[in-house]
Design a protein around this nucleic acid. Sequence first.
DNA 1: ACTGTTGCGGTCATATTGGTCACGGCTGAA
DNA 2: TTCAGCCGTGACCAATATGACCGCAACAGT
Lengths: 234, 234
Amino acid sequence: MTDRDIRVLVVEDEAIAAEAHAAYLGRLTGFLHAGTAKDGHSALRALASPTAVGTPIDLVLMDMTLPDLHGLDVSRRMRAAGLTTDIIAITAVRELHIVRGAVAAGIVQYLIKPFTYATFAQKLMQYRVFRQQLGSQTAVTSQTDVDHAFASLRMPTELPRPKGLSEGTLGAVIEFLKLQSAPVSSSEVMEQLGISRVTARRYLEHLADTGSLHRSPRYGTPGRPENEYAWKRL
Amino acid sequence: MTDRDIRVLVVEDEAIAAEAHAAYLGRLTGFLHAGTAKDGHSALRALASPTAVGTPIDLVLMDMTLPDLHGLDVSRRMRAAGLTTDIIAITAVRELHIVRGAVAAGIVQYLIKPFTYATFAQKLMQYRVFRQQLGSQTAVTSQTDVDHAFASLRMPTELPRPKGLSEGTLGAVIEFLKLQSAPVSSSEVMEQLGISRVTARRYLEHLADTGSLHRSPRYGTPGRPENEYAWKRL
DNA sequence: ACTGTTGCGGTCATATTGGTCACGGCTGAA
DNA sequence: TTCAGCCGTGACCAATATGACCGCAACAGT
């Protein structure tokens, strides 16, 4: 458990995505792509008879939307069968009860599609640290040990942002936008957050460019049309 | 889910410990002791028929060593029955495979006996924050949201102090911050404590990273925004 | 209907200020 | 004495506000 590669089963019905995940795994040291399952039942079979995919599986990259079973169901059946294999959920579904269910099913990480290689790598590295911390000893000795192991799993990741944008301001803008029911202009963001119009616009444009925001011009008033922005909720 | 008290079922065979847990719960705002189960089967019964203990249970404080079933078995049977109720494990057992099994069973916190009220309160408060973050919206909108929610379960227990930080200075900074009613900038900490701005920042950043401090940029003046820090009171 | 005017927001360059980094010195312990 | 750890210094970097200028649409007057 200490030094051996972590054997990973990819559960994903779309071939392209499955290959992408496998390729990502190949770029990471310490991980071994042990196999791929295209639906829930074959995943369960593969896990039940380890020889089918070579060796015992340590980790499952589980897509939530599968042709036969929901990923959560697969996870629950694994638990019911006594399997304690760790699971990382990979999904485009953002519904709250899915997240809650995933936590209850004992998933260790939750990855939202689409994700970059950097995000993927970060999550898996965190899992590796978690595994090493728990694996370095036969018995945990203190509350602190457990806390540290959990902390390595649950450390928030800072996704890369272009130059000129600070984390604090970006967070403030996002927070503000989420609270708004109607689209807002850069001027409104300016006066509500107490920042300059130029700064507000830089962040709004960035969020719009990265797809988090919906942007449309607002006509009807004299002057150059003003862009209005709305948080894109799924 | 948002404002209602979190209803807690205590699963513990020793009467004294069960009463202690209930008493601890009473001291915490936002939590309601909904009932006590003395063994695994009665716990499962209580969860299956919510009226037995009054109302649907939100959280289970689960002792691992029970007379009839192991706490992990109870958790697994809950999952198998489709229950997504959150579980906090309370145990004196420190064996590694128990911890691993607990993670797989979807427990959200792991408390090692004996523990102080402070530790108990901290874990439950963290759980409450986690619940609020996921409950404040019907759908999570980004990877960051999930990360932050998970991070709430992370321990703000001080990780081993990074190099460059001394015990004495850290204590002084914390002392100073606790006295402040308004947020302070690193410059203010500098002149009040007589240390350099760089040093002040080192400590402030560390405290902010470990979650003890709230950090936000201060706008309105030209130049790069100045960060202001405030002690985060529980 | 066409055209000039007006008003407002987008855009850009620049000044300003605090954050960041690397290095060096000081202090205490082995 | 040496070494590690903590702190200060100064140069550089990054994020912001400001103000001048530009572009576009509405409006009014011809």
